[in-house]
Design a protein around this nucleic acid. Structure first.
Length: 598
DNA sequence: CGGACAAGCTGA
DNA sequence: CAGCTTGTCCGG
């Protein structure tokens, strides 16, 4: 064909075809708030909305016949003039500031997720219309030779964090962002700051009614301290001057769902971008924190005073079949006031029933009672026969716990002390009132003060088949220490163990968290775990396709198979670049960057 | 995600 | 081969 005859004809017939297919106006790029759509789409801003649209604005768009929400992530986008574009349907309200939109992009890269997750976290709960007076984002950098120092402040477990927060607020040029492990703790802190006459905004998505949107708008307006929990890492703080993370070691800062982002790491990046300092506060700082900042530890004597006295009950000489109620424990129960007994036996049970056929599990050989000593084994208490966790009636592997270990211990303890003993497990909501309480570690969250905490079987925590088992065990001891307070206030801990020399026990005994950190660092360096390497676990039906597409790029190590893989690199830059280079195969896929458990 | 559309399956 | 199910693609 010598010339584009057909195209010429079209132009002749409809000379203004281009002007009519695309409405006039600025073009913006929008991330739709729809799960499963990773793409961004361009829309024209109608003239009537022109002054309301900027990066971060929450809009509604027509997408494939549906009207959905989305975020403007780029403005004044250059697009070829012949591309047909729709108009934005409407402006819903104010959204994340441009710096948080950029941070959401970074987080999507860092945790191999989608920006939508983070844009949601950075958006107001409900609707916030354009009447938010948002000051321009400014740098509030305190004069310093280091651009954005990260300080790890180790404190004794029972030390009051409040003076640390207030002095940080007073030293901050600009507004401080303070994170707590739970919304309840954040609310308590915000209340206390307000009672002290300090302007404060509590940013949490699960607040009742319209309060949440109001608090968000107050934070966005600036001029107050902003307090929040994990999602508070994404709170609007226009004149950010410092970030404080309380109980930095708390695993509540890690999102369990995919993407598995961590609030500590989000604020470290956020503060670095804003060139403001970060203060990580903990009685037992993580290795990640220690790798990110400079440790400031208390005086040895002050730290020792701040930890309770620890009684170690060496059970090595005892008959393994003997009960958990040792003589030193009985003495503590008689002597101390309120005693919390902790035994983490969730999911492992003294008596189980098949979840499908409801048959109570009994020994297949002698019909004797069966216990579940670990995840994979059922053992007859009468004849000792072991078998896998499998219903011998219907073959099901799902079991219902009828009487977890805690229930049995409650009976034994009540008989020993001759008074009622309350029981606390994860599910039960009631606050226990008895003097002696037994429960899983949930008891340490449910009760606010105690005179003593006894760990009936700390070995279960020390030897748990999890990578962070010892760190978690030590965190458990620190939490208990916080409840009973320091030795000067007669706080007491008791641990029953067959590993009295374990570094976790020794660290608590000497009130020296550095011992755990050093021992853990050794292990993690050897096994190339965080913070000495960057790790991601890949699972789900699409995992084989993902790993195949990933290949073996330089600097990337791939282990595993059979449905679950571990990807490893020296640093996150290498790891995340490799993960981002893979086009996501269809199907369910979980990429767990920085996995907490293995 | 969820609608559109294409390719495969079934019953007359 | 209509009428339906199942699967894959795509959205501005």
């Amino acid at each position: 064909m010598p010339r584009g005859q057909k195209a010429l004809d079209l132009d002749d017939v409809r000379p203004d075809v281009r002007a009519t297919t695309r409405p006039p106006g600025r073009v913006v790029r929008v991330v739709p708030d729809v799960a499963g759509i990773a793409k961004r789409f361009d829309y024209v801003v109608p003239a009537r909305l022109d002054d309301q649209v900027e990066v971060g604005t929450v809009v509604r768009i027509d997408l494939h016949g549906r009207r959905v929400a989305g975020w403007v992530v780029e403005v004044d986008v250059e697009t070829p003039p012949d591309v047909d574009l729709k108009e934005l349907a409407r402006v819903t309200g104010v959204g994340p500031s441009p710096d948080l939109v950029a941070l959401a992009d970074w987080a999507a890269w860092r945790w191999a997720g989608r920006p939508r997750t983070f844009l949601r976290a950075a958006s107001p709960p409900g609707r916030v219309r354009g009447d938010v007076t948002r000051p321009p984002v400014t740098r509030c950098q305190a004069p310093s030779d280091r651009p954005s120092p990260v300080t790890v402040r180790r404190v004794p477990p029972a030390a009051d964090r409040y003076p640390i927060v207030t002095s940080a607020i007073e030293e901050t040029a600009g507004d401080a962002l303070v994170l707590c492990p739970s919304v309840a703790q954040a609310r308590a802190l915000a209340d206390r700051l307000r009672r002290d006459g300090r302007p404060t905004a509590l940013v949490a998505h699960d607040q009742p009614g319209t309060a949440a949107a109001g608090e968000w708008a107050r934070a966005a307006a600036g001029g107050c301290t902003v307090v929040g929990a994990r999602a508070g890492a994404w709170a609007p703080v226009p004149r950010l001057g410092q970030v404080v993370v309380l109980d930095e070691h708390d695993e509540a800062y890690a999102e369990e769902g995919s993407p598995t982002w961590h609030a500590r790491d989000v604020v470290l990046e956020r503060a670095a971008r804003a060139e403001v300092p970060v203060l990580l506060v903990s009685s037992n700082p993580t290795l990640e924190a220690l790798a990110a900042g400079v440790l400031v530890a208390p005086e040895r004597s002050a730290e020792r005073r701040g930890w309770p006295a620890l009684e170690v009950v060496d059970r090595r000489e005892e008959d393994p079949a003997a009960g958990m109620l040792t003589e030193p424990l009985a003495a503590l129960l008689r002597r101390a006031g309120r005693v919390l007994c902790v035994v983490n036996r969730t999911g492992r049970s003294r008596l189980s029933a098949c979840a499908i056929c409801r048959e109570v599990v009994a020994c297949a050989t002698c019909e004797g009672p069966v216990i579940q000593p670990d995840e994979d084994t059922l053992r007859c208490t009468r004849c000792g026969t072991e078998r896998p966790v499998l219903c011998h009636i219907c073959g099901s592997t799902r079991f219902r716990v009828l009487r977890p270990g805690v229930s049995r211990l409650r009976e034994e303890l009540a008989a020993l002390v001759g008074e009622p003993v309350d029981e606390v497990t994860g599910a039960a909501a009631a606050v226990p009132t008895s003097r002696v309480v037994v429960g899983t570690e949930a008891v340490l969250h449910r009760v606010t003060t105690a005179d003593a905490v006894a760990f009936l079987d700390i070995d279960q925590e020390l030897l748990a088949p999890r990578e962070r088992a010892r760190e978690q065990a030590f965190a458990l001891l620190a939490r208990a220490a916080r409840l009973v307070r320091g030795r000067e206030e007669h706080g007491r801990l008791l641990v029953q163990t067959r590993r009295p020399e374990d570094v976790v026990i020794q660290a608590a005994l000497h009130a020296d968290p550095a011992r755990v950190a050093e021992a853990e660092a050794e292990v993690r360096r050897t096994f190339r775990l965080s913070p000495f390497a960057a790790v991601a676990d890949v699972s789900g039906v699409a995992a084989p396709a993902f790993v195949a597409a990933l290949g073996r790029p330089p600097g990337i190590e791939v282990q595993g198979g059979g449905g679950a893989w571990r990807i490893r690199a020296d640093d996150h830059t290498t790891l995340c670049a490799a993960l981002a280079a893979v086009e996501r195969p269809p199907g369910r896929l979980r990429i767990d960057v920085d996995p907490l458990r293995a």
